[in-house]
Amino acid sequence: MRLRAEPPVVGAVAAGGALGATARYGAGLLWPTPHGAFPWTTFTVNVTGCALLGVLMVLLTERSTEWSTAVPHPLLRPFLGTGFCGGFTTFSTYGLETERLLSGGDPTRGLLYLGGTVVTALAAVLAGVTAARAVRARTGRGRVGRA
C-alpha cells in the first residue's frame, strides 16, 4: 500500500477538523465546566459526535447499490467524518478531566465520568448506526416498491 496522501483529502480533513475543534471550543465557552464539577460539556460533545459519526458512516460507506446508484462525494467522509466528528470529539480532554477528578479528591465522580462517557458514547454510535440503517432500509423498500 502506498502512503502518498492526496492533498484534497488532507485539506478536507483539515477543514473539517478546524470546524469541529471550533464548535467544541464554542460549546465550552457557552457551557463552561466549573472546577471539580462533572464535565457535562465534553461528555455531551463526545456523545453527540459519536451519534453523528454513526449516522454519517452508514450514509457514506454502506451504499446499497440495488436501490441507489448515487455515490457520495469522495471528500464528504474525510470532511464530515474524519475531520468534523474527529475534531469535534476529543479523547485527550476526556482523559485530562478524568485525571483531574481522580487526583483532585473526587474519585467517585472521576470513575463515573470515565465509565459513563465510554458506555454512553458506544450506545450513541450504535443508536446512530441503527437509526440510519433503519431509515435507509425503509427508503430503499419504498423506492423498490415505486419502481
Partner: peptide
Amino acid sequence: LLLGTGLCGALTTYSTFSYETL
C-alpha cells in the same frame, strides 16, 4: 488554545474510537 483545545483536541477522537469499537 492552539495546542490543547485545537491540536490535541482534534488529534485525539472519541467518535472514531467508538465507531471502530462498534
